[in-house]
Nucleic acid binder design. Structure first.
Lengths: 162, 162
DNA sequence: TATTGTTATACTCTATAACTATA
DNA sequence: TATAGTTATAGAGTATAACAATA
């Protein structure tokens, strides 16, 4: 939803970010799809492997709604990549653990993503790579002009104070 | 849907692009919302002003589906920013023209977007700005590794050959 | 009473399909 | 028959609301 005519593209930051984001997400979706995963599956699975995290903790880390997390976990379990087990300490919460297949899948996913990133960044000079990543970090991290996800007051879909 | 743990962020291109894209889109949505426009409205309106374009031509330029274009035009007309008039040459097609209010709105929108871009890019050094934009262009434009929107074969929602 | 996870559901967005009118 | 625009609708994604079990 954001294309400008060619003569406008040159200066259009929004177009450049959108295109880069969408195209890279599409390519990640393709290579991860070949491993039976979505990008979101991978984000959750990669975090779940390392620590003993509950669904809620994982949801917070991945910036997912808890109901979206349920769907994601359902999918990961059905695919045999993760398992939910009730915590003995608090029987309300469920720990998400990767299976062996899940760990292998994460490892493979890391490889294909590394390859992809290498291919993408490979068209840049080393100096361009460094400056690009530094600049993006500066914009995006805490305090930068693209850090706070200030909610658009005119946006739809917000029923209560939440 | 794409947050990594902090120690992973450093190298995560996908996270950086997504965050930058989403945050900038949110900020554009906010400032354009104050003018009664969505980002998509602006994209269409800015193109409609210049030339005598039909809905279909505008849809193609803005990479919108023609049915989405109908909704957008409905909104622009209701807001008094654009008007559709049947072409005398071909009575099937409708020319989309900006109203005076629409031209003013585009001008104001250009201003607030310029201000916003200035604020965002202002945190970078001139050299960083140049390299960032050059590098993004290199990735995104024709032939770059993020140019083709290769459809993900595992993605949902595709019924026929179209 | 508060909290974790689940289910049900509603809302938005976008795109396909079918339709009207012109060509 | 093909094309521009419209309408209707279905699909996917996500978030709110209500609920069950547990604390």
């Amino acid at each position: 939803m954001d294309a400008r005519s060619d003569d406008e593209i040159r200066a259009d930051l929004s177009y450049l970010f959108d295109k880069a984001s969408q195209a890279l997400a599409a390519r990640m979706g393709t290579v991860l799809g070949e491993l039976g995963m979505t990008v979101r599956d991978y984000c959750v699975l990669a975090k779940a492997g390392a620590h003993e995290l509950t669904q809620g903790e994982l949801a917070e880390m991945a910036l997912l709604d808890k109901t979206t997390m349920v769907v994601t976990c359902d999918h990961l379990e059905k695919a045999g990549l993760a398992q939910r087990t009730p915590s003995p300490a608090d029987r309300r919460v469920r720990i998400v653990r990767t299976t062996e297949a899940g760990d292998e899948a994460v490892a493979k996913a890391r490889d294909v993503i590394d390859d992809l990133y290498g291919e993408v960044l490979g068209v840049l000079t080393p100096e361009q790579r460094t400056v690009l990543l530094d600049a993006l970090m500066k914009l995006v991290t805490h305090g930068g002009p693209l850090s706070a996800v200030e909610p658009n007051p005119h946006a739809p879909r917000r029923k209560r104070g939440a």
